[in-house]
Simulated scan of single mutants.
Amino acid sequence: MAVIALAGGLGAPGVTTTAMALLMTWPLEPGRRVVLAECDPDGGAILPGALQGTVANTYGLRNLALAGRQGQLADAFWRQLVDVTDAASHDRLVLPGIYDPAHASSLAPVWDQLATLFAGIEQHHHDVLVDLGRRGAFGPSAVLAKRADVVLMVARNTLRGLQSAQVRLGALREQLGGAAEIGLVLVEAGPFGREEIQRHLGAEVVAVLPWQPEHAAVLSDGAAQPRRFESGELIRAARTATTRIRQMVATRRSRLGWPTGAGGREVSGAR
């Protein structure tokens, strides 16, 4: 079980789309679940995007602000999750983000509580993907990155995208101080190759996702699935990425002397 944080840089590199792809392809043994928590302080995109407004904005992160102040976040969290599976299996869940960036200030006391919750949620057979957007790996919500097992920087392999990634990777390394494994997820929209990028940025490229706007729109905007979407290159690349990400989690926990299946941490109220 693991906590994976995803962050981005300038422009729209595809953090939420990548997080959704990992959510839908994350390997689950019987009884296991995976949660995508949309913690982007600039506002969430899943409710109006992938879910196409089919779920009321009464669900989500902003409702945890009051619960956090009242010491009830661990219980309230579970009531804010939305099942995104067609079969209503409740094993792939989303915590929708705030819909107004102005609400981010009210969440300042909540980030640390959420980080603690995520760190202990694996005891209850959950993995967590945390969408931090462009700014969330820094500032008040940075604790979510600091407490993660793996932090993935999502970037397009264009000059603009890689320059932004280089600056943010440097800041992440300084901020995390080796607390989490750091990797890159590339969206193949430019001319630079995997090996060249790894050498230049000094970070492992965990996955290269194809530039397929029609397929990506299914995950970002709830568009109709094109033919062979589930067996297409984008989903195959995301599924392959999950294997490497889980290996990175195991590496980190081995380095810290933790069991690879659990971090030895628990939080009350999770279920």
Rank of each mutant, 00 (worst) to 15 (best):
L47W: 01
L47P: 03
L47Q: 06
L47F: 02
P48C: 09
P48G: 09
P48K: 06
G49T: 05
A50R: 12
L51V: 04
T54D: 03
V55L: 01
V55E: 00
N57I: 00
G60L: 02
G60I: 04
G60R: 03
L61M: 12
R62V: 08
R62K: 12
R62M: 11
N63G: 15
L64G: 05
L64Q: 08
L66I: 14
A67M: 11
A67L: 13
A67H: 11
G68M: 07
R69H: 14
G71A: 08
G71E: 10
Q72F: 05
Q72P: 00
D75W: 09
A76F: 06
R79H: 14
R79W: 09
Q80F: 04
Q80W: 03
L81T: 01
L81Y: 01
V82L: 07
V84D: 00
D86S: 14
A88Q: 03
A88H: 02
G97T: 04
Y99E: 11
Y99K: 00
P101Q: 07
H103Y: 10
H103C: 02
A104D: 08
A104S: 15
S105H: 08
W111G: 07
D112L: 12
D112I: 06
Q113S: 13
L114S: 08
A115T: 09
A115H: 10
T116V: 13
L117I: 11
A119L: 14
A119T: 15
I121E: 12
Q123K: 11
H124Q: 12
D127Y: 12
V128M: 13
V128Q: 09
V128E: 09
V130E: 01
R135H: 15
F138W: 14
P140H: 10
P140S: 11
S141H: 10
A142F: 02
A142S: 15
V143G: 12
L144P: 12
K146R: 15
K146Y: 06
K146G: 14
A148H: 08
D149P: 01
M153K: 06
V154T: 10
A155H: 02
A155C: 06
R156P: 02
R156W: 03
N157G: 04
N157L: 05
T158D: 10
T158W: 09
L159D: 06
L159Q: 10
G161N: 06
Q163W: 07
S164I: 09
A165Q: 01
V167R: 15
L169S: 02
G170C: 03
G170K: 12
A171D: 10
L172M: 05
L172I: 03
L172P: 00
E174D: 14
E174H: 13
L176I: 05
L176N: 05
G177E: 03
G177I: 03
G178D: 07
A179K: 09
A180N: 04
I182N: 04
I182V: 15
G183E: 06
G183F: 08
V185N: 01
V185F: 04
L186R: 01
V187W: 02
V187Y: 00
A189M: 03
P191F: 09
P191D: 13
P191T: 13
F192E: 12
G193Q: 13
R194P: 01
